[in-house]
């Protein structure tokens, strides 16, 4: 009971706090790209865009990696190393997000600025479309780096879920596939994945929910500028990073504070939907 009330209270408090903003700007709050504290004009489009782009990019990088790990841990790894490696991956999930932020800022960002980004920009120079996608100043920070760090953070969650659902596949199914001469990879593709498809998607959605709300790590590396840039090395912001940065400068009762709370409400709605879908998909198998 208490938990239900808690969730309700969170929604209501964010809605009440954000209400002045929603009333002042209406639907335009979601579509406007302005964020001008001086003029008291606020719009949510940029952080919402940044949130979704970084999260989706992060998943694009994390899912193949997580899948590989889960496959390795369930089918390939010798029993002796299975547990230590599994634990190590779980520890990756336990590292506090602020540590990822520092690590990203002091290790990944210089690395990206020095090696990865100039290289990619040089290589793709002249290729239409891709050239524009990967353009931008090679400062190391930006959407791409943020997504990369999010990917590292999300991998253990997705991998752990995938490993757990892969283990629910009855051994008989796998053994019969091996019995007719399948290779390990064929068993994976033709037996395990079809059997666990909805749970795998659920695990991915769970990772997406994590990535959407991640604050500290993203704040460190995304560059924090309020504009939509079409290229991936450009800076941007996300809902969570914007809230974390601007909160200290907002007076109680101001329209800006209210806008931040309204942003929080939007984030809550997005992540609630994603997490709800993921729980429903994951539950199917358990039941």
């Amino acid at each position: 009971m208490f938990v239900l009330i808690l969730l309700g209270a969170i929604i209501i408090s964010l809605l009440v706090g954000g209400w002045p903003t929603l009333r002042a700007f209406g639907l335009a709050f979601v579509t406007s790209t302005d964020w001008d504290p001086v003029q008291e004009v606020f719009g949510a489009a940029v952080p919402v865009y940044g949130t979704i782009v970084t999260s989706v990019l992060a998943l694009l990088m994390a899912v193949p990696l997580a899948f590989g790990i889960a496959f390795y841990l369930t089918e390939l790894a010798p029993p002796l190393v299975r547990r230590p490696i599994g634990t190590a991956i779980e520890l990756l999930a336990a590292v506090p997000s602020i540590i990822y932020g520092m690590w990203g800022f002091f290790v990944v960002v210089p690395f990206m600025a020095e090696y990865v980004q100039p290289h990619i920009i040089d290589t793709l120079d002249g290729t239409p479309l891709l050239q524009d996608l990967f353009a931008g100043p090679p400062f190391g920070t930006g959407i791409f780096t943020a997504a990369l760090i999010l990917a590292v953070m999300v991998v253990p969650f997705v991998a752990a879920t995938m490993r757990d659902v892969f283990q629910t596949v009855p051994a008989v199914y796998k053994e019969s596939a091996y019995g007719v001469g399948c290779t390990t990879w064929e068993v994976m593709r033709s037996v395990v994945i079809p059997y666990t498809r909805s749970s795998v998607v659920g695990g991915i959605m769970l990772g997406l929910g994590r990535a959407l709300g991640e604050t500290m790590a993203v704040t460190f590396v995304i560059g924090n500028s309020n504009r939509i840039s079409g290229n991936l090395f450009g800076s941007g912001n996300t809902i969570a990073s914007l809230v974390a940065l601007e909160f200290g400068e907002s007076e109680a009762g101001s329209l800006k504070l209210s806008s931040l709370l309204a942003l929080g409400f939007i984030l809550f709605v997005i992540s609630f939907i994603v997490l709800a879908i993921s729980r429903l998909l994951l539950r199917e198998v358990k039941a």
Binding site: V3, L4, L6, L7, I10, S13, L14, G17, L206, G209, R210, L212, G213, E214, T215, A240, V243, A244, L260, L261, G264, L267, F268, S271, F272, L275, A276, R279
Partner: peptide, 15 residues
């Protein structure tokens, strides 16, 4: 609800 809260963004809890 408890499962959703388990993975809800922590910044929202702060707000």
């Amino acid at each position: 609800v408890s499962d959703v809260l388990l993975s809800a963004p922590s910044i929202l809890i702060g707000l």
